[in-house]
């Protein structure tokens, strides 16, 4: 598949109640690399194998949750094109100047019908993954520190108007539907998993009355062994775990969900499959979500906290 247009999730800015506690969690327990701090006091981190300067930005605030989630696009012409397309679709967009986030170019920001702020950008300084580009070694000391996921993989957001969100992502931004959960009476789509790539999801949404909520940010590991090791590391550090280790029926991902010190849920996971845009989407009934093992395949049950607790 040719990779053009929107390439991948690029960065997420999270609100944390206590900055240093947040940094200790993402840097020392999760094992991300701290790459900078700005005048506003925000802290920038990246996963060891990511090449761009940052993927998670922590901002101390009086509430938890997500400020914005951003996608990197192919180049500046693509950014201009998509900005025009969004406006033609009827969405207001805003240009955030280059440098407002460290080592990051101009961003096009817009609010989607679920109440979330989404950004597109084309430039972020490539600081590399600590390996040479010519004849590289397979790993580095940074890949062995903490849980050490390879990348920020996707996020799941909770908010209203999921049908409109799907239309926007699919018709304007070039995403496609990979999986979905129908509502309790078989009506509409209560949850959708969208991809702009060959990944089982780059972003997902669940219908929810309150706008702009974060369900989780997800970080990719390379093996089930590493997911179990992540469980050990979380427990050693007394990080509260929501679910897992287990496997979802939905996306087939093998996963653990836990909460950061401010109550923002995060996921460490591996697996899934590699969909193409011509695949027929997989559909789960509302029953299938629980008894069908959509959420938790081995246990075939709904987990109340997973369905209701968000920031």
């Amino acid at each position: 598949m040719a990779m053009t247009g929107v390439l991948r999730p690029g960065h997420a800015q999270l609100r944390v109640l206590d900055l240093e506690e947040g940094v200790r969690h993402y840097r020392d327990v999760l094992g991300m690399v701290e790459t900078g701090r700005d005048e506003q006091g925000r802290v920038y981190l990246k996963c060891w194998d990511e090449r761009d300067h940052n993927s998670v930005i922590l901002r101390e605030a009086d509430s938890a949750g997500i400020d914005f989630f951003a996608f990197k696009v192919l180049d500046e012409a693509t950014l201009d094109q998509l900005e025009g397309d969004l406006q033609a679709y009827g969405l207001g967009t805003e240009r955030i100047p280059a440098g407002e986030l460290l080592e990051t170019g101009e961003r096009v920001r817009f609010t989607i019908p679920s109440g979330h702020q989404i950004e597109l950008y084309a430039k972020k300084t490539q600081v590399g993954n600590g390996l040479q580009v010519l004849n590289p070694a397979p790993w580095t000391p940074a890949s062995e520190k903490g849980i050490a996921p390879v990348r920020l993989d996707h996020c799941l957001l909770y908010g209203p108007n999921v049908a409109e969100v799907k239309k926007l992502f699919c018709e304007v931004l070039g995403f496609y539907l990979v999986e979905r959960v129908l509502g309790p009476e078989g009506e509409g789509e209560a949850a959708i998993w969208l991809s702009c790539s060959h990944k089982v999801h780059d972003i997902a949404f669940v219908e929810h009355p309150e706008p702009g909520k974060l369900h989780h940010l997800s970080f990719l590991l390379e093996s089930w062994e590493e997911v179990l090791r992540a469980g050990d590391i979380l427990s050693m550090n007394k990080v509260p775990i929501d679910i897992g280790p287990t496997r979802h029926g939905i996306t087939r991902g093998c996963t653990i969900y836990a909460w950061d010190p401010s109550g923002n849920r995060f996921e460490t996971f591996m697996g899934g499959y590699q969909p193409y845009p011509d695949y027929e989407p997989t559909t789960w009934t509302f029953e299938g979500l629980g008894a069908g093992g959509g959420l938790d395949y081995p246990q075939r049950k709904l987990h109340e906290t997973f369905l209701t607790v968000v920031t």
Binding site: L17, S63, A64, G65, P240, W259, D260, P261, S262, G263, N264, R265, T305, T308, V309, V310, T311
Partner: peptide
């Protein structure tokens, strides 16, 4: 019981 971090409010 939710996030145990003062963020979710439950």
């Amino acid at each position: 019981v939710g996030c145990r971090g003062g963020g979710c409010g439950v």
